[in-house]
C-alpha cells in the first residue's frame, strides 16, 4: 500500500513535470533553443493565479488567469527575445533566456516581496479524497486530471488536425513546409502560446500544492525541465512525457529510500548522469 501511494504521488508529480517540460521540448524541437525562461512563465502563471484568487476570492477564476497570462507572455518572449536572435548561434538565445529568467525572478521579488504570496483561501489544498486507500487532495487530483486532459488534447491536436500536421511538417523541415504554404512564424507563435499555457497551469497547481507562490519557484523546475528533455531525447514530445513520469516516480521513492544520501532535487541529475552514461542521446533518442 505504501509503495502504491509512493507510485501514485510520484506519477502525479511527474504529470506536473510533463506539463512544464512539454513547452520546453516543443521550443527545442522547433527552434533548437533551450528555453530557460519557460520557468519564469511557470512562476508568472502562479503569480497571475494567486493574485486573481486573492482579489476575487475564487480559485476557479485563478485557472483562466494563470493560463491566459502565461499563454499571452510566451509568444511575446518569442517575438521580442528569440525572434531577433534566430540568425545567431543558439547559445546567444540561451544566454538571453537565462537573463530573462533571472530578470523575471527578480521582478517578482521586487513587485510581490521576497517571501512570496500565500493563497488567502485554498479549499483545494485542504479538501482530500481517499481513492482506494490513498489520500489525495484536490490539487493533486487536478494535477493528474489536467495533465491527462491537456496532454491528451494536445496529442489529438498534433496528430489529427490540419494545423497539427502543419506544425509537425515545420519541425521536420521548415523550409519545405514554408514552400508548401505553411507560415513558420505562426507555428512558432502557436508553439509558444500552447507550451506557455501548460507551464502557467503547472505553476498555478504547484503554487496551490505548496499554498505559496514565491519568486524562486521556477528555478528548481527549470533545471529539472532541462534534465527531463535531455532524458526524453531532445525535441521528442512523448519521450519528455515519459521521462517526466519516470522522474516523478524515482523522486517519490528516492525521498524515502535515498534521503540519507541524496537530496530530492539532486535525484534528477543523478538519473540524468546515469542514463547519459548508458544512452548518450537520452532514453528516447529522436528518429534518424
Amino acid at each position: 500500500m505504501f509503495h502504491l501511494e509512493l507510485l501514485v504521488v510520484g506519477l502525479i508529480w511527474g504529470a506536473m513535470y510533463a506539463m512544464m517540460a512539454l513547452g520546453l521540448t516543443l521550443v527545442y524541437g522547433l527552434l533548437r533553443i533551450l528555453h530557460v525562461a519557460h520557468a519564469g512563465v511557470f512562476a508568472l502563471g502562479a503569480y497571475a493565479g494567486v493574485l486573481t484568487a486573492n482579489a476575487t476570492g475564487s480559485l476557479w477564476l485563478a485557472v483562466p488567469a494563470a493560463i491566459g497570462v502565461a499563454a499571452a507572455v510566451g509568444p511575446l518572449i518569442y517575438r521580442f527575445i528569440y525572434a531577433p536572435m534566430l540568425s545567431r548561434p543558439p547559445y546567444v538565445a540561451l544566454i538571453a533566456s537565462i537573463g530573462l529568467f533571472i530578470a523575471m525572478e527578480d521582478g517578482f521579488r521586487l513587485l510581490f516581496g521576497p517571501y512570496g504570496l500565500p493563497f488567502d483561501y485554498n479549499p483545494w489544498f485542504v479538501t482530500t479524497y481517499s481513492l482506494g486507500g490513498i489520500s489525495l487532495n484536490v490539487v493533486q487530483i487536478a494535477m493528474a486530471v489536467s495533465t491527462l486532459v491537456l496532454a491528451g488534447a494536445f496529442g489529438v491536436f498534433i496528430a489529427a488536425t490540419r494545423v497539427g500536421v502543419a506544425w509537425r511538417a515545420t519541425v521536420s523541415d521548415p523550409q519545405m513546409a514554408q514552400s508548401f504554404g505553411i507560415d513558420p512564424v505562426r507555428v512558432r507563435y502557436l508553439n509558444f502560446a500552447i507550451g506557455s499555457a501548460m507551464a502557467g497551469a503547472a505553476g498555478l497547481l504547484v503554487g496551490l500544492l505548496n499554498n505559496l507562490v514565491e519568486p524562486g519557484m521556477g528555478a528548481v523546475v527549470s533545471y529539472k525541465g532541462l534534465a527531463i528533455i535531455v532524458l526524453g531525447g531532445l525535441g521528442n514530445v512523448p519521450g519528455a512525457v515519459v521521462a517526466s513520469l519516470i522522474l516523478g516516480v524515482v523522486e517519490s521513492f528516492g525521498t524515502v529510500y535515498l534521503a540519507a544520501v541524496l537530496d530530492r532535487d539532486a535525484i534528477a541529475f543523478a538519473v540524468l548522469i546515469a542514463v547519459l552514461l548508458i544512452r548518450p542521446r537520452g532514453l528516447f533518442a529522436p528518429a534518424r
Partner: peptide
C-alpha cells in the same frame, strides 16, 4: 526532403496545403 516524421498521407496533405 520528405517530412520524415509525417505519414505518407500527411506529406501529401501538406503538399496540397495551398
Amino acid at each position: 526532403r520528405v517530412f520524415s516524421d509525417l505519414s505518407v498521407a500527411e506529406n501529401l496533405l501538406v503538399g496540397g496545403y495551398v
